[in-house]
Simulated scan of single mutants.
Amino acid sequence: MELSVVTGCLAGAISQDPEDVIQGGDVLNKQASASMEGFLQANAPPETEVLGGPCEESSWIRPPVDFLKCNWDASIDGRSKKMGMGLVFRDSSGGFRAAAISNIPYITDPEIAESIAARWVVSMCAKLGFQSVVFERDALVVVNSLLSPSPCWRICGGIVEDTRRMLHQFNSWTVKHARRSANQVAYFLAKHALSLVQDIVWRGECPSFL
């Protein structure tokens, strides 16, 4: 399943700039932790190096030394008509480096939501200053669309092409496919994002629920 559809009305407004809140404070962290625990229970530059390609992984595997791995996911709430996005960065020792969640109202088309989420992830990576990254997602169509050399003529083609161009900002990168079991943290973050009223970015200190 490429995208999870969440039912139930989840209230809240949204700040659409992923830099609106870079939050490490106790208040939002505790709120996010409590909410998550409840949920858990109920054209490229020459120097750019593109590594590998689609590779289905059934469990989370550490990236190469000097690389970060970014797992991401997207989710839709059909009743409240919005999408949620979540990402997490970990290093070659498995250590937490950063995580982020965001939601956008009035996005209910799965293909458009997936494309928007991919662009958001790449944008967040650039803003955080990470340059050597393995991007990993459990939706093969998304992975293939980012790696394909052919123009994307689908309804979301402009977003996909924009994301491809953005990827070439990085020194070294790849996009891989993984099973849902290897993408659980990002999956939970994307679901949790649907219940928030603002974007949150954690950097350095891992949230207690991860």
Rank of each mutant, 00 (worst) to 15 (best):
M85T: 08
M166H: 05
A113E: 00
S195Q: 03
S148L: 10
A98H: 10
Q198I: 15
L147N: 09
L140M: 13
K176N: 10
K176P: 01
A100W: 14
S102D: 14
H192L: 02
A182M: 04
I112E: 11
G53H: 01
V50E: 08
L146H: 02
N103K: 14
N43I: 14
S150M: 15
A99N: 11
A44G: 12
N43S: 11
D138N: 11
T174A: 13
D91W: 00
R119F: 14
G158N: 09
P105S: 12
A13S: 10
S150K: 15
V160Y: 03
Y187Q: 09
E19P: 01
D77H: 08
I155T: 11
V133P: 01
A186V: 03
A11N: 11
I61M: 06
D17W: 08
D17G: 03
A113N: 05
R79D: 15
N103C: 08
M124Y: 06
K69Y: 05
E161T: 02
E56Y: 12
V160G: 00
C70E: 05
V201G: 00
L28D: 15
V134N: 03
F130C: 01
M166F: 15
A32F: 04
A44F: 06
V201H: 01
H168A: 09
S35K: 14
C125M: 00
E111Y: 14
F96E: 06
G129F: 00
N103W: 14
A44K: 13
S208K: 12
K82R: 13
I116F: 11
S181F: 07
G94S: 07
D17V: 11
P46W: 05
S59M: 09
S93H: 15
R90S: 01
A100E: 07
Y187F: 11
M83V: 10
I112A: 15
M124I: 13
V201N: 11
A190H: 05
R165A: 09
A178H: 06
V175L: 03
T48S: 10
E161P: 03
G157K: 02
P45S: 10
C125A: 02
E49P: 03
P207C: 06
C70K: 07
W60V: 06
